[in-house]
Amino acid sequence: MTRGNNNPNRAPLALGRDRATALLPVIMAIMSFLAVLAAGGFFAILTMTEGWSSTLTGKATVEIPYQEGMDMDRASAEVLKVLLDTPGIVTALPVGEDEIRTILSPWIGDLAQDELPLPRLIDFTIAEGQVDLAALEARLRESNAAIRITGAQAALQSLEDLARLTRTIAALAALSLIGIAALTALFATRALLAGHRRTIEILHLIGATDRYIAAAFQNVFFTRALAGALPGAALGAIILWLTAYFFERMDAALLPAPWPGFAGWLAVALMPALIALITSLTARFAVLAALRRDEE
């Protein structure tokens, strides 16, 4: 901070033990903890949705329920044409009546099957992520409102939409927390400036530059923010790890464990430095701006 003076409490600007920054490590620990959870959550959800996409097949089925008076063959042919004309759909194949009867036999038995009206089913496969199933279903319903798309891919799309929303919220939460850290630094800087106005004036008169003053603030905010952000992030990382670990042990087959992945752990590891950097830069620019304002 200051040439030839290693003890921060004997530096010309004794900011280290000021009440204005006393709580800064605690606040930054909380911010860092929450930001790590938000960032870790963001990457965990990202990893999970990637897992769904890779583990679930790209198959879905169009179901045309039986309707009195409807030409089911014609309806089936129309749906088949729409499917085959849709970019991203690789194959589309009507399910045969015998196969449908086999599918239904556990529920209705063999006896009355000939008399029962059967729905028509058309299986289709899609290239991953290339077909908007909701839009496709809406298009099919233009000719028959009863038509619906079922299957893992359709369910996956809903989950992916939900996951995307959750990711957005997690990212916004992480950014908001970093923003709050910056605002906290701004208010603490102003309080610190007010408390050290006389010292700053003396230093200026002796020949200190604004950058010298700002650097003293920047260093104090960096070290104090880092002192809080490191344990906060460590605690957040432990919580993330435990969550994924116990989730995995629950053997929940439907969803993969929420491990943040390499990018997630990297974000967690960098979070304290990021918070300390943003906090210290906020302090620096707040000091420079305040000193310029004072001059005017």
Partner: peptide, 21 residues
């Protein structure tokens, strides 16, 4: 006087030299 109260006499006197570098 405008001395810095948290610094010793020695450190106060040394300030201009330390600031100049």
């Amino acid at each position: 006087y405008r001395l810095l109260d948290h610094l010793s006499a020695r450190e106060n006197v040394a300030l201009p030299l330390r600031l100049t570098g």
